Amino acid sequence: MSAPRAVRHPRFKLLALLAVFVLPLLVAWVMVAWRIGIPEQRTAHGELVPDIPALAEWPLAEPHAPLEGGDWVLAFDCAGSCEALADQWWRLHRALGSEAHRVSRLRIGGDSQALPGEVVARWSTPPGWRRPDQLWVLDPRGEAVLGYSAGVEPRDVLDDINKLLRMNPESSVKSARQVAQQ
Rank of each mutant, 00 (worst) to 15 (best):
A75S: 12
A75Q: 04
A75F: 03
A75H: 03
A75W: 08
A75M: 07
A75D: 06
A75P: 04
A75I: 05
A75V: 05
F76I: 03
F76R: 00
F76V: 01
F76Q: 01
D77A: 08
D77Y: 11
D77W: 12
D77T: 00
D77G: 01
D77L: 07
D77R: 06
C78I: 04
C78N: 12
C78T: 06
C78Y: 04
C78E: 07
C78S: 13
A79L: 09
A79I: 00
A79F: 12
A79K: 13
A79Q: 14
G80P: 03
G80V: 06
G80A: 12
G80R: 09
G80C: 02
G80F: 02
S81F: 09
S81H: 11
C82K: 06
C82F: 06
C82M: 05
C82R: 05
C82H: 03
C82P: 05
C82N: 04
E83H: 09
E83P: 02
E83V: 14
E83D: 15
E83Y: 01
A84P: 00
A84D: 11
A84L: 08
A84F: 08
L85Y: 08
L85N: 11
L85D: 10
L85C: 08
L85V: 00
A86Q: 14
A86T: 07
D87Q: 15
D87F: 11
D87K: 10
D87L: 14
D87E: 14
Q88C: 05
Q88E: 15
Q88S: 12
Q88K: 15
W89M: 07
W89T: 04
W89I: 02
W89N: 00
W90K: 04
W90R: 13
W90F: 14
W90G: 06
R91P: 03
R91W: 10
R91Q: 15
R91N: 14
R91Y: 05
L92E: 01
L92K: 00
L92A: 02
H93E: 02
H93D: 10
H93Q: 13
H93F: 02
H93N: 06
H93L: 09
H93A: 10
R94E: 15
R94A: 13
R94I: 12
A95D: 15
A95P: 04
A95R: 11
A95C: 07
A95K: 10
L96Y: 05
L96N: 06
L96F: 09
L96P: 06
L96M: 03
L96D: 06
L96H: 07
G97R: 09
G97S: 06
G97T: 08
S98Q: 13
S98V: 03
S98L: 06
S98A: 12
S98Y: 02
S98R: 13
E99Q: 15
E99D: 15
E99S: 13
E99T: 10
E99Y: 00
E99H: 07
E99I: 00
E99N: 09
A100N: 08
A100D: 07
A100K: 06
A100M: 04
H101P: 03
H101K: 09
R102D: 07
R102N: 10
R102P: 09
R102L: 15
R102S: 10
V103K: 08
V103G: 01
V103C: 05
V103M: 13
V103Q: 03
S104W: 01
S104M: 09
S104N: 11
R105P: 04
R105M: 14
